[in-house]
Nucleic acid binder design. Structure first.
Lengths: 174, 174
DNA sequence: ACCGCCATTGGACCAAAGGACAATACCGGG
DNA sequence: CCCGGTATTGTCCTTTGGTCCAATGGCGGT
């Protein structure tokens, strides 16, 4: 694991090339002050293994380090979306099987199934959109967005949009 | 990759044991409707490879699948914190070196360094705490929390607490 | 036809979040 | 000693976020 600081005056990719030359086999994770999709892309094609916000939590960094240690890449959610096209192939190559186990009796819980609209709204909110923005991109009133959001909160037992975001991103609010 | 539905009436661990018996070499990721740390722990000791919210984004799930494919575990931020004690050893075993590269000239950017207090507040906020809660757990006024939060927003160019959360968790808001 | 679920929207209302402008106090360095 | 950065708190005000009660229209199943 290497910690270094890029010289702002020189192209990052050049410095990386230089680094790879002098050190040979290294795995680089770039921590950016102001993450940018395009920068990330060029860095990845320059051989970088991970790219995330410079202010990420220690826990996040450990997690990232773990992933890269295991031979993976860490690209973050948004960039992930931009890369889906090129990676979908690799992902869909995974063998998938479905095993219904038991009569799906359990169910029990408080019926947490979200409707299509609710899922749509929930995802938007979880990615940082305001009610107004969600309203615009869904072509509905902000009032209606609130209705859906509220219903999502109930079903998922989230107390506010931030907790919802944490949940939908594979984490759990404290 | 296996998709199945646990029978609510039977202990999850029992069903897992059964599953492992019938399928042998499988990697299980549990998607919980209401994630719970203790449940997660018992599931992990039962051999589960991943544990996250059942409503996680498709992108998140792909990411998780990737990590597990690479031989890793996916435990999520909060549980991670609970496990730090037991995993710290493994993590600190990673070789670490520091290479100052260049005269740290760049710097340039708009001075993004957060103060200790700001980091403390930012982390709390990013984990889902309200201003009031942060105030309580820091022993300061809610007003002061707002001051710090505001300053963090400026330095990190986050437009609101949700975006801040997304940033601090290794992602990037859309 | 009636019922339940979904999507939609309205209005009112209250709490939380953020921004604007400003003040006080501590601390370390030139 | 004065200056700058940090920490703290204040008030005022605007914008968002969330909840409650209520209503309308569509759709599929009994």
């Amino acid at each position: 694991m290497v910690w270094l600081r890029l010289d702002g005056a020189q192209a990052a990719t050049d410095q990386l090339a230089q680094l790879y030359q002098s050190l040979g086999e290294v795995r680089v994770i770039v921590l950016a002050d102001q993450p940018d999709g395009d920068e990330a892309l060029s860095l990845f094609s320059a051989g970088v293994r991970g790219y995330c916000n410079a202010h990420a939590t220690a826990a996040s960094l450990r997690q990232i380090a773990g992933v890269i240690e295991a031979g993976g890449l860490w690209i973050g959610e948004s960039l992930m979306k931009r890369l889906v096209v090129s990676t979908r192939a690799a992902i869909s190559r995974l063998p998938v099987a479905r095993l219904p186990l038991g009569p799906v009796s359990g169910e029990g819980s408080p019926m947490s199934a979200l409707t299509k609209r609710e899922v749509e709204v929930a995802r938007a909110v979880a990615s940082g959109a305001s009610n107004k923005e969600v309203a615009r991109q869904c072509g509905i009133t902000e009032r209606t967005v609130k209705a859906h959001v509220g219903s999502v909160f109930q079903k998922l037992k989230a107390r506010d949009r931030l907790h919802l975001a944490l949940m939908l991103n594979g984490q759990r609010p404290s």
